[in-house]
Design a protein around this nucleic acid. Structure first.
Length: 169
DNA sequence: CTCTTGATTGTTGAG
DNA sequence: CTCAACAATCAAGAG
């Protein structure tokens, strides 16, 4: 497999009700118009030139979560091999070997982290808003909307177990 | 930087 | 403006 930096990654519809306006026909509009327009990468570079230390890092995906565990296992079997690259390759191979059902628990956890991440981003966005407005906004007004909170509430730890063992398909 | 995959993000073109 | 889709960047782990 090519390890290009980025490969297939199509986002899912935000809403199931969202039906394709023009069928998937438009689909690869890139083939239609984007002959060799590399403006995309360029535009990014120009526009994205700011790093915010407050910006929360991305949550680990199911694969990463799996890797964490895999590293532990791999380390035991290969105490001499400390190269993360080796584990990465081995993990990737195994990951593909695993069935979606096995990945399910990891995906569930990943989804959880994503929820937390979303909340961080929310706070981060608000913060940007505040500071952007007044420059340094260490104001206390934000207490009404964003609450650091945690505890209580709701960390539901329900494991999403498939009720129906019935395999579809 | 190496290396894995996925997910989030961002830009752009079309409607 | 919004949708849709792709392209790219980034996430961690140890040397």
């Amino acid at each position: 497999m090519k390890t290009g930096k980025g490969k297939g990654a199509v986002k899912k519809d935000t809403k199931e009700a969202l039906k394709p306006v023009h069928d998937r026909g438009v689909g690869k509009r890139k083939a239609v118009f984007m002959a060799d327009q590399s403006s995309k990468r360029k535009a990014k570079k120009e526009k994205m030139a700011k790093k915010d230390p407050n910006k929360p890092k991305r949550p680990p995906s199911a694969f990463f979560l799996f890797l964490e565990e895999f590293r532990n296992t791999f380390k035991k079997e290969h105490p001499d091999v400390k190269a993360v690259s080796a584990v990465g390759k081995a993990g990737g191979a195994k990951w593909k070997s695993m069935t979606p059902a096995d990945k399910a628990p990891y995906e569930a956890k990943a989804a959880k982290r994503k929820s937390e991440y979303e909340r961080l981003i929310n706070a981060y966005n608000k913060k940007q808003e505040s500071s952007a407005d007044e420059g340094e906004g260490e104001s206390e007004k934000s207490k009404s909307e964003i609450q650091d909170d945690e505890e209580e509430s709701g960390q539901d730890e329900e494991e999403e177990e498939e009720d129906d063992d019935d395999d579809d398909d």
